Simulated scan of single mutants.
Amino acid sequence: MKALIVDDEQDIREALGRKLRRENFEVVACSNGLEGLRTFHAERPDIVILDIVMPGEMNGLTVAKRIREIADTPIMMLSSQAITEQDIIDGLNSGADEYLIKPVRLNEFIARVQALLRRSQVAVSQAEQAYDDGYLNVDLHRRHVYVQGRKVHLTPTEFKLLAVLMENSGRVVNQRDLLEQVWGREYIDDVYYPRVYVSQLRRKIEADPANPVYILTEHRVGYRFEKHKPHVD
């Protein structure tokens, strides 16, 4: 596995790099966004660890957006301040999958890197590999999602969330189970994650995200995926 670290703080680059190498990662490190984007194109890493605030014209959010134009590579954002739901939404809109607050605890960092890589390699059950009702078309095996014939890009985490809900279609997945199945046991206490990510997923696949018909909320319980009969002209 190859990891790209983009951070203007040398101490952080070195500390994260040492920890990753101990876990048998090949590591490439850069000090600014432009260099990071060029290195991404040249090295094609398996995961990107990206600081949000960096000097120069290209901050972490911009780098993430540029990466998302060409690749589904998992992206972890590093933030030097407490993370709000709006921070997560801004990161998701740029294409990020994960946030971690500085100063980084190295064992937690590795656990979350590994969990993020697991999410990017979704194991799909044989029973629910595809869904098509004429409006929404999902091929879990090929990782393709289309809305009204238009391909929709999902981040690895958004795709894993959709896959888990579809594999349990018609049944409510409670928030704790959703956190464990999509994000991993390391995230059991991050109770706001499902709400924020479900909201983002609805924006991409629902005709009216405010009145969803596919991903429904069971108040104070969890979420369920609802199938629909194929549209007939």
Score class of each variant (00 low, 15 high):
70 I>M: 08
53 V>R: 11
149 G>K: 08
23 E>H: 15
8 D>C: 10
231 H>G: 15
28 V>R: 08
67 I>H: 03
139 D>K: 07
213 V>C: 11
216 L>W: 00
89 I>R: 15
116 L>N: 01
45 P>R: 02
119 R>V: 07
126 Q>H: 13
23 E>N: 15
103 P>I: 07
158 E>R: 06
36 G>F: 02
231 H>S: 13
207 A>E: 14
71 A>G: 06
5 I>P: 04
65 K>W: 12
160 K>C: 06
155 T>P: 09
29 A>C: 07
56 G>R: 07
201 L>K: 05
132 D>H: 10
74 P>W: 02
222 G>F: 00
11 D>N: 11
101 I>D: 13
222 G>H: 01
162 L>D: 03
73 T>S: 04
148 Q>C: 11
142 R>T: 10
108 E>H: 12
228 H>R: 15
163 A>H: 05
17 G>R: 02
97 D>T: 05
56 G>Y: 12
58 M>C: 12
109 F>G: 05
9 E>L: 08
121 Q>A: 08
103 P>D: 08
196 V>G: 07
56 G>D: 09
66 R>K: 13
67 I>F: 02
169 S>A: 14
112 R>K: 11
86 Q>G: 06
24 N>I: 13
206 E>W: 11
210 A>G: 11
113 V>H: 00
3 A>Y: 00
63 V>K: 02
86 Q>L: 07
182 V>E: 01
227 K>I: 03
53 V>D: 10
18 R>A: 05
233 D>Q: 13
101 I>S: 14
139 D>Y: 09
211 N>M: 09
77 M>E: 07
10 Q>C: 08
8 D>L: 05
28 V>G: 01
9 E>G: 02
92 L>I: 12
127 A>C: 03
63 V>D: 03
141 H>T: 14
203 R>C: 06
2 K>W: 10
153 H>S: 15
164 V>K: 04
7 D>Q: 02
109 F>H: 07
92 L>F: 12
96 A>H: 00
148 Q>T: 10
181 Q>V: 09
42 A>W: 01
161 L>C: 01
44 R>F: 09
29 A>Y: 00
33 G>S: 05
60 G>A: 03
214 Y>L: 10
34 L>S: 09
220 R>S: 14
30 C>N: 06
71 A>I: 01
155 T>Y: 07
69 E>D: 15
86 Q>E: 13
163 A>W: 04
30 C>H: 08
132 D>S: 11
103 P>Y: 05
212 P>G: 08
47 I>L: 02
199 S>Q: 14
157 T>W: 00
49 I>P: 02
47 I>Y: 00
180 E>H: 09
143 R>E: 13
194 P>F: 02
3 A>S: 03
31 S>W: 00
196 V>Q: 10
180 E>P: 01
22 R>M: 12
5 I>M: 07
99 Y>N: 03
205 I>V: 09
100 L>T: 09
135 Y>Q: 11
24 N>P: 12
201 L>F: 06
178 L>P: 01
91 G>A: 09
10 Q>A: 14
82 A>G: 10
176 R>P: 05
13 R>N: 11
100 L>A: 12
195 R>P: 00
63 V>W: 04
